[in-house]
Design a protein around this nucleic acid. Structure first.
Lengths: 192, 192
DNA sequence: CTGTATATGAACTGATCTGTTCAGTTTGAT
DNA sequence: ATCAAACTGAACAGATCAGTTCATATACAG
């Protein structure tokens, strides 16, 4: 348990960056909000960017683990789990501290594709797509790649809708769309 | 043509904010990139926030006008136009300066729902939803509100996918999903 | 030609930004 | 008890932040 201060910093910085944004959060703010000295911060991370990258790594791990475990709890079958994704999203959206997707926000604040923060955010989405595609294949979809892409697009759209508040129940709207797409992807295979 | 400098400022500031982000763009950068003096800027807008709001108003007008005209050119029927939305998106994604949705980014950088910039960004999406819902109603969808919400979620997801680059052809994936949803929304009406 | 509105550059405020330096303190293992 | 590693606060650097001030310049209408 040696590097506990580092983990504590990353964990607490995550909540501040998520709440206020990356550019809007200064290192002095992090000193106040984490109670960790600036000297220690810059001993563990040479730059703010490195800290952000560590935060995003933690977020990726936390989020994907949470989602996969949640949908496994909600449904035993791969097809059911693909739909349960949107029930899990609905639970997330209802949390009082929900502020949208940290990776979408990171990619927005660092908009160049080549920027490390942007690239790492995109990687999180690619990993999600791989997870969905494996489930779509296990469910017996005719084109698991396409279904995974469509469901991922629905997921990202629902998150944006929930954060910006222009849809009264984005997870439900996305879920009904996902059901139609899944039925089509399974039905076509059975019929062909 | 009296307030031409003001319009010029808003137009040029839009490209810089869109390219680099809001917090990342300082007023001195705008002086360099627009060639307009800081004194003039702060005569037209009392704060940076007011300038951003004007930029977002222009962006809303430009984008919605462009989208509606483009889909009207691509298809004569409401149902065809709902699908053409995703062809139009594909053209936008292919532009070299494409950097995602300015309103999603604005809402990300100003994450509090009550913030004027966040609220105005959300309003843009609500106006888009109204446009889509009118088209869905004209197309004869059983539940025009639901179809509009689903298509809007697909649109936002496709934009995120295009910006973050985790889908090889997001507009096509979203379009095929939209076709399935539209067919369901029209078919159910004909069958019932 | 004159008066008014608009635009300009440059300097300035005071705060905040990322990152550094340094001298001293806490911590934990041996 | 000792020693090294980790942590601390505070001051500092130099740049940049939003926004102001002021004296001057340009444009245009009567």
């Amino acid at each position: 348990m040696r590097p506990s201060k580092r983990d504590e910093l990353v964990r607490k910085a995550l909540t501040v960056f998520y709440r206020d944004g990356f550019h809007a959060t200064g290192m002095d703010t992090l000193v106040l909000e984490t109670g960790i000295s600036k000297t220690t911060m810059f001993k563990h991370f040479r730059t703010k960017e490195e800290l952000i990258l560590a935060v995003l790594r933690l977020r990726d791990e936390n989020f994907r683990n949470w989602l996969m475990r949640r949908i496994a709890d909600l449904s035993p079958s791969p097809a059911g789990q693909l739909i349960a994704v949107f029930d899990a999203l609905g639970e997330w959206f209802a949390e009082p501290d929900f502020r949208g997707c940290m990776f979408i926000k990171a990619a927005g604040e660092y908009p160049e594709a080549g920027h490390p923060i942007h690239a790492q955010s995109a990687e999180h989405k690619r990993l999600l797509k791989k997870d969905l595609e494996a489930m779509a294949r296990a469910a017996g979809a005719t084109d698991p790649g396409l279904l995974a892409r469509q469901l991922l697009i629905l997921k990202e759209g629902a998150i944006v809708a929930a954060h910006m508040g222009f849809d009264p129940d984005p997870s439900q709207a996305a879920k009904s769309a996902a059901q139609a797409l899944l039925a089509q992807a399974l039905g076509a295979g059975a019929a062909g």
